[in-house]
């Protein structure tokens, strides 16, 4: 169980590792595709790594709804219950 700040920090680490962006650029309102320039394969990689890190399941059909970093943080927080 992690609070949303911890989830954001953990997700930012994954995104930074995958893209080379600075973790500080991974902010809640940023869009994965439009702002962070993440393609669909990288997004799937990030999802797979996030599932492992946060011990949650993010179904493939949900991934398309995760437009912003905040959407992903909310989904992970909810999935963790």
């Amino acid at each position: 169980m992690a609070d949303k700040n911890e989830i954001l920090a953990g997700l930012a680490e994954i995104v930074a590792e995958e893209t080379g962006l600075d973790t500080a650029e991974v902010e809640l309102e940023k869009s994965f595709t439009d702002d962070l320039d993440i393609d669909s394969l990288s997004m799937m990689t990030i999802v797979t790594l996030a599932e492992e890190k946060f011990e949650v399941r993010i179904p493939d059909e949900k991934v398309k709804d995760l437009t912003t970093v905040g959407d992903a943080v909310d989904f992970i927080a909810a999935a963790q219950g």
Partner: peptide
Amino acid sequence: EKGAARVLPLTVP
């Protein structure tokens, strides 16, 4: 070690 869900999407490319 970890199951099929941990196989990364870039494996094939």
